[in-house]
Design a protein around this nucleic acid. Structure first.
Length: 753
DNA sequence: GGAGGCCTCGGAAGG
DNA sequence: CGAGGCCTCC
């Protein structure tokens, strides 16, 4: 038995060693789930299973990448032959191989969500439907949900229950839109994200020999975060595993937080029904958090009805109690947290990266940001507009897309008049009309405009020809130039690069930099290749999965020392020594929209469970009595979730410590459960506001031998000063606190005596 | 085609 | 309140 097995506890060991048959691993938060998955795969390889016979599915690229790296550390390069990736990336790989069977070319485009919504919007317009009623978002949501439930456009229109639902929603034409949308995607040789699942299902369903081929290929299947699978994913996995039944799913029903995008918690709850002889393993020992955190989390989740019985426990120390902080306003909440981070950093010698601020909605990040910025606390916000969604990036990528697949309608619409070349809205509408009439793609018309009666006059027609010729000429270079050469050629000949270069506004500069970054990506992609007459790292290869990439996949892992700000959803799978969960208020968390149903409230509670189980050492829960929402002040009460934590895990209500000479005082006004004490917090607010600016220190005065006063540690003498600039540190001997090392950048030292 | 004004709308988010 | 979409005007 390989050495690595000995690093595992008994439950983990069993889960790793049981290789055959259906297995379900229920992994509590922080129980070493990834470790088990990686060792299990390593163990399969050790047992002579070929890497290419193992399929491992995850939800994020990041998870797949991490796992592959970890396996590579154990087994070496063999790990590269594993089928390991997200559902979408693995399925797109299969679809590119088998595309002809379902009527697509191998070089199909993958539409991202905004492409899909644009197409829907344009169809709604073409059908002359009221876009106030047929909101693209809603229509997209219906179509997406249909596909995730494996309902084709035909079945949709034939399903009286669905049609009736749409009628009741006063949107009886959604089925028609769905039909046209599917047709247009096919014409454009494009699949949206949901198609990657739906069409994989269709492929395996319609072609039994293809199904058999992949059943034989994927002798062992592993699925991570199984509680997040939707119906389509569930069915496809089931089909693939049908023959060998060597399927291992890993998940935690308590962390199912994605039902709003179709995840079905029943998939994990019913695993034993689907696979009768399944072995179940429970990983219940938590290695991440303190006893206090683990026990509090258990107590919270116990309020849910739908769940597996699990007993998550830990050998870790008791740890600090959970602190509840109440503030008057959301602004104050931000200030108090910034102060608390500042203090904890000093007191506990923590680095900034050990802190995370988690919130329910992205809108809450702004207040936090402001406070952190005022205190010069470095932070990083996760989420928001991704690199690949930026306008300038999408524009250039649209050129790339058209070169790989000229039928790509959304790419064409984006760039046919960008940079401006005199092909206006009216002309484009005529093109679309003509394409629809002739049942062709827009590119079919554009590339052969002479042969169609479009009603477009000579001027614009000439310009369309020029555009078409340009695309064709780029296309001619596709296999002659490598991806970087062609990409750069396009960026410069179209004038895209130049116009951004000339734009010296901050936005323009940033756009130019982004384009450069994309080109750098192309360069990296081609870097491995030697110069030959027939390059292999061509643009079409680069484009294959670019639509499946997200920011998290971009290289240059930011190891900077910053506080992390993100939604609780995006914190799933991560861990931080110290966690602040902010906005613990009724109608915010739990969200107002969840209060109507028990199931939704339970999902909010799981979300809270996820939030506090991110923490290793400390948890702070904060709430504000008033908060700005949509420009109005709203009043809120403490979240019901706070009162679900047994008091023994909460910091007892304590009187504040006497104000310090700087006017600083203990921020942690504790407040048990739902009933606010009405304690006056004015002084606290003042304290936050009168905090000296972190940057206000003048470094020159802090010299060896200087007597100083520190905000928290009081009087002391500087023993030595090391480092330069922002990293200048002083070693100071405090009268009452002994020797401490302090970063001058953040310390507020006052020279005394 | 682009700038600027008006209107609307507001949950979380992977691929 | 503020972002984004849409319309209007130049």
């Amino acid at each position: 038995m390989p050495q690595f097995i000995n690093e595992l506890n008994d439950a983990q060991k069993e889960a790793v060693l049981s290789l055959n048959g259906p297995n379900m691993i229920l992994a509590g938060a922080g129980s070493g789930k990834t470790k088990v998955l990686t060792y299990r795969i390593a163990h399969l390889l050790h047992n002579g299973i070929a890497a290419f016979n193992i399929l491992s599915l995850t939800f994020t690229n990041k998870a797949a990448k991490e796992m592959r790296e970890r396996i590579e550390k154990i087994v070496g390069l063999e790990a590269r032959s594993l089928w390991m990736g997200t559902f979408h990336s693995v399925f797109s790989r299969i679809l590119r191989t088998e595309s002809d069977k379902i009527g697509f070319p191998y070089n199909f485009t993958i539409y991202d969500t905004s492409d899909a919504k644009n197409l829907i919007k344009s169809i709604i317009k073409e059908l002359k439907l009221d876009d106030k009623i047929y909101k693209p978002n809603i229509v997209y949501g219906r179509i997406s949900a249909a596909k995730n439930n494996l309902i084709s456009a035909n079945s949709y229109n034939a399903d009286s229950a669905i049609m009736n639902e749409d009628k009741i929603m006063t949107k009886p034409e959604i089925g028609r839109i769905y039909t046209i949308y599917s047709k247009r995607c096919l014409k454009a040789s494009a699949m949206d994200f949901d198609d990657l699942l739906f069409l994989t299902y269709k492929l395996l369903k319609l072609f039994p020999d293809t199904l058999l081929k992949y059943q034989n290929l994927f002798k062992y299947i592993l699925v991570d975060e199984y509680q997040d699978t939707n119906y389509a994913q569930y069915v496809i996995v089931k089909m693939l595993a049908q023959k060998n039944k060597n399927i291992c799913v890993v998940g935690d029903d308590a962390q199912s937080i994605y039902s709003f995008r179709g995840a079905n918690i029943e998939n994990i709850l019913n695993f034993k029904k689907d696979y009768k002889f399944a072995d179940t393993f429970k990983l219940e020992q938590n290695y991440r958090s303190t006893k206090t955190i683990v026990n509090a989390a258990n107590a919270i989740i116990a309020n849910n009805e739908n769940q597996f019985k699990k007993n998550v426990w830990t050998d870790n120390p008791e740890g600090n109690k959970i602190k509840i902080i109440k503030t008057k306003t959301d602004n104050e909440e931000g200030k108090v947290i910034a102060n608390a981070i500042y203090d904890m950093k000093l007191q506990m010698q923590e680095s900034f990266k050990s802190f995370a601020i988690l919130y329910r909605t992205n809108a809450q990040s702004r207040v936090m940001e402001e406070s952190l910025r005022k205190m010069n606390i470095p932070y990083r916000i996760y989420g928001g507009l991704s690199f690949y969604q930026r306008k300038e990036i999408k524009d250039l990528l649209s050129y790339f897309r058209m070169i790989v697949n000229p039928s790509d309608e959304e790419a064409l619409k984006r760039i046919i008049n960008y940079p401006a070349r005199g092909i206006g809205k009216v002309t484009i509408d005529k093109l679309i009309l003509s394409a629809n009439r002739h049942d062709k793609s827009i590119w079919d018309i554009v590339s052969d405009i002479e042969h169609y009666e479009t009603g477009i006059s000579n001027g614009p027609r000439k310009k369309i020809q020029d555009f078409s010729n340009m695309i064709l000429s780029f296309g001619g270079d596709l296999y002659k130039k490598d991806a970087f050469e062609l990409g750069e050629h396009i960026a410069s000949t179209t004038g895209l690069l130049k116009s951004l270069y000339l734009d010296k506004t901050p936005e323009g500069v940033s756009k130019y930099e982004n384009i450069q970054e994309l080109l750098n990506g192309l360069k990296q992609f081609t870097a491995s290749e030697e110069k030959t007459n027939t390059p292999e790292k061509t643009l079409d290869k680069f484009m294959e999965d670019v639509a499946l990439l997200t920011d998290a996949d971009k290289t240059s892992e930011d190891d900077m020392n910053r506080v992390s700000l993100m939604t609780i959803h995006s914190a799933k799978g991560l861990e931080f020594p110290n966690v602040f969960v902010v906005g613990m208020e009724e109608n915010l968390f739990p969200s107002k929209l969840s209060l109507t149903s028990r199931l939704e409230l339970e999902e909010e509670r799981r979300l809270f469970y996820v939030a506090i189980t991110r923490a290793e050492k400390s948890v702070h829960l904060t709430y504000a009595q008033t908060r700005f929402k949509y420009g109005d002040i709203t009043y809120s009460e403490a979240s019901r979730f706070i009162s679900e934590i047994p008091k023994e895990y909460l910091e007892p209500l304590s009187r504040k410590t006497a104000p310090h000479s700087f006017g600083q005082q203990n921020h942690f006004s504790t407040n048990q459960s739902a009933i606010p004490s009405g304690q006056k917090l004015v002084s606290l607010k003042k304290a936050a506001q009168t905090m000296p600016k972190a940057s206000s220190y003048s470094g020159e005065k802090i010299k060896e031998g200087a007597n100083i006063e520190h905000l928290r540690f009081g009087i002391g003498t500087v023993i030595s000063v090391e480092g330069i600039g922002a990293s200048t540190k002083a070693t100071i001997l405090f009268t009452n606190h002994g020797k401490k090392q302090i970063l001058l950048k953040f310390a507020k030292l006052k020279i005394v005596g």
